[in-house]
């Protein structure tokens, strides 16, 4: 193992448990298989053989109770918003939300219609916004990489707060 070569065999590594857990968390982001509209097709392609999200540990699950990430892929209207919130509440902590596409970010081309929610952040807290209509699978991939960075940052901030330091 690479770590062994750095520190010598049978060495002991000290780390914060939260940092170790977040390392694991950000490399196995299982997303909820929940497509609403057009973006869901690109989400499907992202999981397919060409873009192969599995290599980042990103994989789909059918049940919200087994998922870490919710990708809101499509237009959310008032009827859907109720179900969306229920699904979000069913997911175990820690959980993250990716707003995929213009509709989930702002309402997109349909924002003039009164039935459409102007951005999914009115219902659930959003961690990463992915622009595009629909975003290409590469864009979704970039969104996931940003989310991984955000998780890492959060872990560092928490450690700093524990030390009483401020990284500024």
């Amino acid at each position: 193992m690479a770590l062994d070569r750095l520190t010598g065999e049978n060495s002991v590594v000290f780390t914060r448990s939260e940092q170790l857990l977040d390392l694991a968390r950000r490399h196995s982001l299982w997303y909820l298989m929940f497509g609403i509209a057009c973006c869901a097709i690109e989400m499907m392609h992202a999981g397919g053989p060409k873009y192969d999200f599995d290599r980042f540990g990103i994989f789909h699950r059918g049940s919200p109770r087994q998922s870490d990430v919710m990708i809101v892929a499509g237009t959310v209207n008032k009827k859907m918003a109720v179900s969306l919130k229920t699904l979000y509440e069913q997911m175990p902590e820690p959980k993250w939300v990716l707003a995929m596409g213009a509709c989930a970010c702002t309402g997109g081309p349909f924002r003039d219609y009164p039935n459409v929610i102007l951005g999914v952040d009115e219902i659930v807290p959003v961690d990463v916004y992915i622009p595009g209509c629909p975003p290409r699978p590469e864009a979704l991939q970039n969104g996931f990489l940003e989310l991984q960075k955000a998780i890492k940052r959060r872990a560092e901030e928490r450690v700093d707060a524990g030390r009483g330091e401020d990284r500024g």
């Binding site: 609403i36 499509g74 237009t75 209207n77 009827k79 859907m80 349909f110 003039d112 219609y113 039935n115």
Partner: peptide
Amino acid sequence: LGYLHRGLEKLSEH
């Protein structure tokens, strides 16, 4: 139905 109703027809009038 209605979970994806986003008013395509009505928006087209505008």
